[in-house]
């Protein structure tokens, strides 16, 4: 039963992931990627990590829906009404991908892995929380600062015109330089 479930989830994850680059529609590609993520979340749940498995499900559902919006913003052919092929350097990439797979899978199968050491904590979520708020606090703080830097960086990148465009490098322009009248100036 467990093996059957594992095989179904594993095949779903890989096949859906491969189909992402085969289908003609951006929307279908996004939701196939979501299916692949959900299958991996199922596999993570099978290892007993309920909290992280559910976090992956919730995060990926939201992430893929946001991605679908950007897909439709930036992509030709969002609905898949025409055949779509957007590959470059397929042969070289295939060689690299197959080589990577052979190296990784060969390593996984050939390495003499150590035996399982220790037992899982009774409450894994509690153990993770205590770890993040204790010994792994530096990791947590680094993640927090990185996420904050991402927020600032993405806003700066995505904003069309910021205050330095409007008010000059020293922010001391007598009137704001706006394309349209009615902006909030000084």
């Amino acid at each position: 039963m467990t093996t059957a479930l594992f095989v179904v989830l594993a095949v779903t994850a890989v096949v859906a992931g491969a189909l992402v680059f085969r289908v003609d529609s951006m929307a279908r590609a996004t939701f196939l990627l979501l299916l692949s993520f959900l299958a991996v979340a199922g596999l993570v749940l099978m290892t007993g990590l309920q909290y992280l498995g559910v976090v992956i499900v919730l995060m990926m559902v939201i992430e893929m829906v946001v991605m679908a919006i950007f897909m439709i913003m930036y992509m030709m052919n969002p609905a898949g009404l025409m055949p779509m092929s957007m590959f470059h350097n397929t042969r070289g990439a295939a060689v690299i991908a197959v080589t990577t797979f052979v190296a990784l899978a060969g390593g996984a199968l050939l390495v003499d892995w150590p035996v399982r050491g220790g037992r899982p904590a009774a409450d894994l979520t509690m153990a993770l929380g205590e770890s993040l708020m204790g010994g792994q606090m530096l990791t947590m703080m680094t993640l927090g600062v990185t996420l904050f830097a991402t927020i600032v960086g993405t806003v700066v990148l995505a904003a069309g015109r910021g205050r330095y465009d409007r008010l000059g490098d020293e922010l001391d322009a007598p009137a704001s330089d706006d394309r349209d009248r009615g902006g909030v100036g000084r």
């Binding site: 992402v20 992509m75 957007m86 690299i96 990577t100």
Partner: peptide
């Protein structure tokens, strides 16, 4: 999964893909 993702990242022309 890593190999398929690598193939996609190397072949796709669209930045989003």
């Amino acid at each position: 999964l890593v190999a398929v993702g690598l193939f996609g990242a190397l072949t796709q022309q669209s930045i989003v893909m």
